[in-house]
Design a protein around this nucleic acid. Structure first.
Lengths: 214, 214
DNA sequence: AACCGTGTCAAACATTTGCTTGATAAAACC
DNA sequence: GGTTTTATCAAGCAAATGTTTGACACGGTT
């Protein structure tokens, strides 16, 4: 969690964690608190006061560092986008990739939730600054699907891009449709046991439509 | 909560739509406006003033009829739940059912959106009054999948309940993941053309995993 | 015609929200 | 060591939000 960031110029200062003022650490505290709050309640539902409280810092520092709620949201999104990018090692076969994505909800549910919130708030291509980045990242997976299709394991009538979207949505179901799961499966959709079971089922589905791992 | 108040005595009154005061009509105006507003912005994002404006009635009437925002939300949910129930003719094969569900977004996008919002707000089985109703409705589909499985067209390792959830989530993707679609497919995820295409792809997926229509 | 219950409205209210201000002290600089 | 910069805080503000109040007029009853 705590990252004692070496300052840009070599400063002969006391050990950072003994400092009474540590901007980088504070920024990080705020960003983490923001991720928790925004992912829990969405943009409109998130409260600046709550974020400050979670971070254990003065509320005003949010304006100081990020220029208000909007700025904080954007900075936080960007940080998460990057973390997400680092998370997926390139070259992982799709079924496994999907299974991991479904499992992700256990260790940091913030990612899928933020994506889901932003989907419902989405108004058009203009207000999505991460579009290019996300596109780039998913393009590989689409290519992989297209390759499978050309190898004949996937019927020609399938649109690879749509298929990928459908599989992503399916893998996110524990996040987007917990009520339905609760109703249909009768179990707590957030419990580790179920999430693992569901992740396996996602992989089964992927295999079922012909995306065998090598 | 919602009580459609048939006038206790049969009144010999002028045509309702010429009346200057028409409680039933007003209720309906408010409920429709609420569905539009809540589905557009979610519960926290919805503004009582906006709902009143949409309905063309005084803001106070919302408290008068529904006892505030919370009450209105609940009444509106219940109404929509019922409408949804009437919409699905029993006995429709699953692939077609899914295709229609995916298409639904064209004619009344409110339904899927409300479901998605409520999923993200979901905290536990307690705060979901529609659970029983939804469960009953989906149980049939699970049974159908189980039957397909027993007929051997679906591998034993598949959990029918999970599969149904995944397929629902997939069918809702134009609602839940428009940003991703915009990025991956490069088209407007709300355009009629794409929605139809996507609905077909959902049906293709269903067929792909062995759920052939009779 | 007088009366009353109820549907409707305009205005105001208490609370919450995100943000700004002004002061203060810790660090960095020379 | 003295000065400047900057990280932090407490208090307060204007706008917005959901709700309450009080008035009033329509529609039916007597």
């Amino acid at each position: 969690m705590y990252n004692p960031r070496v300052p840009s110029k070599p400063r002969r200062s006391p050990k950072p964690h003994e400092r009474q003022r540590d901007p980088d650490h504070t920024r990080k505290l705020i960003l983490d608190a923001a991720a928790a709050e925004f992912s829990a309640h969405g943009y409109v539902g998130a409260r600046i006061r709550a974020i400050a409280a979670r971070a254990g810092v003065n509320q005003q520092l949010i304006s100081y560092y990020f220029d208000g709620k909007e700025g904080l949201y954007q900075a936080m999104s960007q940080q998460w986008q990057q973390r997400q990018r680092e998370l997926v090692p390139p070259g992982t076969p799709l079924p496994e990739q999907l299974r991991r994505y479904a499992l992700e909800v256990l260790h940091n549910p913030e990612g899928p939730r933020l994506l889901a919130w932003s989907g419902l708030q989405y108004t058009g291509p203009d207000d999505d600054p991460d579009r290019a980045s996300r596109t780039r990242q998913l393009a590989d997976s689409v290519d992989e699907l297209r390759a499978v299709q050309e190898s004949g394991r996937l019927p020609a009538e399938v649109d690879p891009a749509c298929l990928l979207v459908m599989l992503m949505a399916a893998a996110m179901a524990t996040t987007t449709l917990p009520q339905v799961i609760e109703g249909v499966c009768g179990t707590d959709p957030k419990s580790a046991g179920f999430v693992e079971h569901f992740a396996d089922q996602v992989a089964v589905l992927a295999r079922l439509i012909g995306l065998e791992p090598a």
